[in-house]
Write a protein that binds this DNA or RNA. Structure first.
Lengths: 214, 214
DNA sequence: CAAAAACTAGACCAATTGGTCAGGTTTTTG
DNA sequence: CAAAAACCTGACCAATTGGTCTAGTTTTTG
């Protein structure tokens, strides 16, 4: 049977589904939802178009499945941070994680960005609620840090927005960055960009950068 | 006569062209290039579809005209900064300008973002060259500031990327922000976000925030 | 004021494309 | 090993949509 619940066998179906998702991620990132052609996903996955529609009921279905997989990338170490943790360590680690996603999964980041820019028409209210809940709990921890004097006064929302913006930028705007730098960023440059961002954000809100991230 | 060179008369053609551009900006920002329907631009502009194609040769032509108008927004006070200027003042002003664009022209920002995310398929190499030239001259000024000891050592590229990312985020990701905050940001909140960003960036690279922007 | 230019607009079309269908083959399973 | 389930695929279709054509109306201009 072929419901799309999680399972990672090596059946021919699982392999093809994975190939299709990889191809679709690339196509949707480059062309957007409306601009993406099922035929081109098929070409990229080296399967006939009909198979795409066989494994995923429709273009919509494929997109939704892909989006769900992408959203799971948003989980991070910051999710479990507590008031007793060290803000510098936690935030530096969080930024480093976010930068790593931008480096390794730029297309996933782009698809998410496209979705938000267009008004999040395909994000379920379940995800939105979950996201809001997550945000509230994280803002609470940041406020506790501030009360405890571990973090200088700063609006938690704008702090988080800046971390997201600053890290996702390297994935979403890679075309611009490549153009301006004259070449695509390599791993070393990503490491430097990560250090810069960590320093900017931590120092920007009055924290000391942990030695590990200098 | 109807070449699309600049002119701001009140002829019926100029008025309609302007109405179409306003409508198109909204539609392209929400649906992307491929997802935008000429008919819907027409509906929004309250003109028959044929008139859209009359004033602009094609959907492509309309999009290109709009994009060109949007690119002109990128000019700013930072363009003319010199080594003898004060980095704190210049950068604070630059960030404030960028935030103002995000607040007043969010759809323009979104269209630019969509264009870059999709690999900048419609940005002329003329614009790219111009942009690179601009970047080189700005990086040079930042480096002079560093040499003069007016600005602590920081990679000029990553500094500028962070300013762009941090400010454009408020336009491009407004759907997410609205969802997480529970409401759309008003002018007061934009003012606070601007202060936060200025403080984060300036303090982040070791500068003092000018009183005017506190 | 007449002719040219600018503008309005309904009818229509060709091309694209997501998706269906029917008839296969291969793999799994009892 | 047979039957059922899973998988493959070419032919085909209906709907959408950017764009054209033709024919008219309004505005500008010499």
């Amino acid at each position: 049977m072929s419901d799309s619940l999680s399972k990672k066998d090596d059946s021919i179906g699982a392999i093809n589904r994975a190939k299709i998702l990889v191809a679709a991620e690339k196509e949707f990132a480059i062309h957007g939802f409306k601009g993406t052609r099922v035929q081109r996903i098929a070409d990229r996955a080296e399967l006939p178009k009909t198979n795409i529609l066989y494994y995923f009921k429709s273009k919509d279905g494929l997109y939704l499945a892909l989006l769900q997989e992408i959203l799971s990338l948003w989980n991070s170490s910051f999710d479990n941070a507590k008031a007793q943790d060290d803000p510098s360590e936690v935030l530096a680690r969080y930024i480093a994680d976010k930068m790593e996603i931008s480096r390794c999964r730029p297309d996933a980041s782009k698809i998410f960005a496209l979705e938000i820019i267009n008004g999040a028409p395909n994000l379920s209210s379940f995800f939105k609620d979950q996201h809001s809940t997550w945000m509230n709990s994280r803002v609470a921890v940041l406020r506790q840090w501030i009360e405890l004097g571990k973090l200088p006064d700063i609006d938690p929302y704008y702090l988080l927005f800046n971390i997201w913006a600053g890290s996702q930028h390297y994935a979403d705007f890679s075309a611009q960055i490549t153009e301006l730098k004259g070449h695509a960023m390599d791993q070393t440059e990503f490491a430097n960009a990560t250090k810069s961002l960590i320093k900017l954000v931590l120092q920007g809100c009055g924290l000391i950068v942990p030695p590990l991230y200098k």
